[in-house]
């Protein structure tokens, strides 16, 4: 069994670290500091931690105010409320002026699990990606999450980071170097490429391993920065393989699949399949059951690769 780590725990720890070196860092939460793990920052730096209560819109507006006065605010809550409930505040108070606010949201996607559809955002990437000035990052494991948070705090401008609830399989060693805007090629291949984000990166690697048994050589790319998208890497691999699959724990509308399709449609049209949540809301269930029920498994990716390659042959 592959080892797993919680991105949220990692986020909580790196915040405390960053609090030391970055005196301008302030952290806001909305009555979920035990779940988002910002609580530890609060314990260590009580005067720089603001629990805003169950009032996400006010939290985002207040974060904007902190940024206007030169602070570096990190605002955390569940992803569904950070992006959905407070959308206009994020749009008009943060993204439009391009303020230096870091929205670091947890419990994204179906793997929220038993709480069900009201808490499972499958549209947050879409919402954040269409906002000018906004950078959107979806880390694939705890190591990448820590580096993404660190990079976001060092970066000037609004950033949205999407973290999950359950522990994700460990993918990266300490030698990994995350860079905003750079996709990471985790596996080279000639026969097809899977562009993945978040928890689907590990599923894509599993799928590629299964396909290699069949003699297929499939590349896997962790597209952790969804905006700005690493067009160069995406076009290069699409050209090389001629068969593209995208994989994300998000609606097939507006997320990674859409972003890749937009680029390839203009620069390198090749057969493509988007694996993600079809046009429907989530539901209650355990995280693994839900990934299975919604077709977000390595088996499903294997089928998608076969499907896209069949279409290549017919062309």
């Amino acid at each position: 069994m592959q080892s797993k780590s919680s991105m949220r725990e990692a986020y909580g720890r790196v915040l405390v670290e960053l609090g030391k070196s970055c005196p301008d860092l302030v952290v806001l939460d909305a009555d979920l500091s035990g779940s988002t793990k910002t609580k530890d920052f609060g314990k260590n730096y009580p005067d720089r931690f603001f629990n805003m209560g169950i009032a996400e819109q006010n939290m985002m507006g207040t974060a904007a105010g902190f940024a206007l006065a030169g602070k570096i605010p990190c605002a955390s809550t569940f992803a569904v409320f950070a992006t959905g409930r407070a959308y206009d505040q994020v749009r008009n108070a943060i993204a439009y002026p391009g303020l230096n606010v870091k929205i670091i949201a947890t419990h994204a996607g179906l793997t929220v699990g038993e709480d069900g559809a009201t808490h499972q955002t499958i549209e947050d990437i879409s919402l954040m990606r269409t906002l000018p000035n906004m950078t959107v990052i979806v880390p694939a494991d705890a190591v990448e999450a820590v580096q993404a948070v660190t990079a976001a705090v060092a970066f000037r401008g609004p950033v949205y980071i999407r973290l999950g609830r359950p522990a994700f399989p460990d993918l990266f060693g300490d030698d990994y170097q995350f860079q905003i805007g750079k996709a990471a090629i985790l596996r080279e291949g000639e026969d097809a490429v899977i562009f993945a984000a978040g928890i689907m990166v590990s599923k894509a690697l599993e799928a590629a391993a299964q396909l290699s048994v069949e003699g297929l050589d499939v590349a896997v790319v962790d597209v952790s920065t969804i905006k700005p998208l690493d067009r160069e890497t995406i076009v290069k691999l699409a050209e090389k393989t001629g068969a593209v699959v995208t994989a994300e724990e998000h609606s097939i509308y507006g997320g990674l699949g859409s972003a890749v399709a937009e680029v390839l449609g203009e620069q390198c049209p090749v057969p493509m399949v988007r694996v993600g949540v079809e046009d429907r809301f989530g539901e209650s269930g355990s995280p693994e059951e839900l990934l299975d029920a919604f077709g977000l498994t390595s088996e499903h990716l294997v089928k998608a690769v076969h499907g896209v390659r069949d279409r290549c042959k017919k062309r």
């Binding site: 069900g116 559809a117 539901e283 269930g285 059951e289 839900l290």
Partner: peptide, 11 residues
């Protein structure tokens, strides 16, 4: 309650 396929969703 809260199981996959149920009407009794978490919320």
């Amino acid at each position: 309650l809260r199981k996959l396929g149920t009407r009794l969703q978490g919320h």
